[in-house]
Design a protein around this nucleic acid. Structure first.
Length: 318
DNA sequence: CGCTTTTGACCAGCGC
DNA sequence: GCGCTGGTCAAAAGCG
């Protein structure tokens, strides 16, 4: 319960962890392009604000959250797989450098079409009654027929931490857990406890580096954080983001490559977007299909950008 | 007592 | 069409 979405540690970006979130059409695969400087935009879209290392955020870690070591950040695409490989605080590499390669790349996914604007938000009602073949008894369990699941923009954070749940100021309720293919670690699904908030969070550990926790947030909070009025997230220019709550992790930031130059304040604090009017931040989708292109060069390479260099396949120019 | 977590089952999307 | 996998539901259990 405890973590919130918006601010976890190493921000990776919205990635499609695993394949999931398929339902986006080709277009939906838009990617977030976070170039140096662009990251902040994206974050803003999600309600986060970046502060150049000014005020340190309150150390609220209720449960001793471990200090995450930001490993990476990026947007996911709908098809990408979790950057299982190469993540690591030190390594700095969030994925492979090859854009096409899945590994470290994080793609951005855009929300689907826009959709978001209205109620749809995610298809919460995935369960409306009737569904094909199943008796009406479990109306809720079934998604409206023909209705596609609409995904909201997602961001993933890779954090080096011993604990899975990083505090981010919001309250979460776990609603599911699944075994992850090719990984000994299960993936947990959380939903914001605010009944009107549709933000979801997915937490899993990297199979390659168990010390890395991959947290994926979907949606945008429409309310203020639950308990930490001012919790903030720290972004390491070199490493990525460090959640405010994750702060304790700071202890781990002593890893050579990490520092805490910047801070991100949790979004909701000021003008939380209406729950049913979530905006999807999306970048113009690069072409189609493979948008998983966002790539994050983590730590080591990120000097220039604060979070990492996430570049869509065709947009890389460097 | 209320809320959260656990866990098995179900459904949809995707690839073959 | 079939099987696999991800995502979600919901009842039961656990906890404060």
């Amino acid at each position: 319960m405890d973590d919130d979405e918006d601010g976890p540690p190493g921000l990776v970006g919205d990635f499609a962890g695993g394949s999931s979130w398929p339902h986006l059409g080709p277009d939906a695969d838009s990617v977030y392009f976070l170039g140096a400087g662009a990251e902040s935009n994206i974050l803003s879209e999600f309600g986060w604000s970046l502060h150049a290392g000014d005020e340190p955020r309150p150390p609220h870690d209720e449960r001793g959250v471990e200090g995450p070591c930001p490993v990476g950040f990026g947007a996911f695409d709908s098809a990408g797989a979790l950057p299982a490989g190469g993540v690591g605080c030190g390594g700095g590499r969030f994925g492979r450098s090859d854009p096409s390669a899945a590994g470290g790349s994080v793609g951005g996914e855009a929300s689907t079409s826009n959709a978001s604007d209205s109620s749809a938000s995610e298809d919460l009602p995935e369960k409306s009654a009737s569904s094909g073949g199943k008796p009406p008894e479990t109306p809720n369990k079934v998604r409206r027929k023909g209705q596609k699941r609409i995904r909201q923009p997602r961001f993933a954070f890779m954090t080096k931490s011993d604990i899975d749940n990083l505090e981010d100021g919001y309250r979460w309720r776990k609603y599911g857990q699944k075994a992850v293919k090719n990984s000994p670690f299960p993936r947990s699904y959380y939903r914001c406890t605010n009944s009107r908030c549709t933000v979801k969070k997915r937490v899993e550990r990297s199979s390659e580096d168990p010390t890395i926790v991959i947290t994926t947030y979907e949606g945008q909070h429409c309310h203020h954080s639950a308990g930490f009025p001012r919790g903030g997230l720290v972004i390491s220019r070199e490493a990525g983001l460090v959640g405010g709550r994750l702060a304790p992790l700071a202890t781990r930031l002593d890893h050579p490559p990490f520092q805490l130059p910047q801070e991100i304040s949790p979004p909701p604090a000021r003008h939380p977007p209406p729950c049913n009017n979530l905006r999807s931040t999306q970048l113009p989708s690069t072409s189609s299909g493979d948008s998983r292109a966002l790539q994050v060069h983590s730590s080591a390479n990120v000097d220039q950008g604060l979070l990492g260099d996430i570049v869509p396949p065709g947009m890389r120019n460097r």
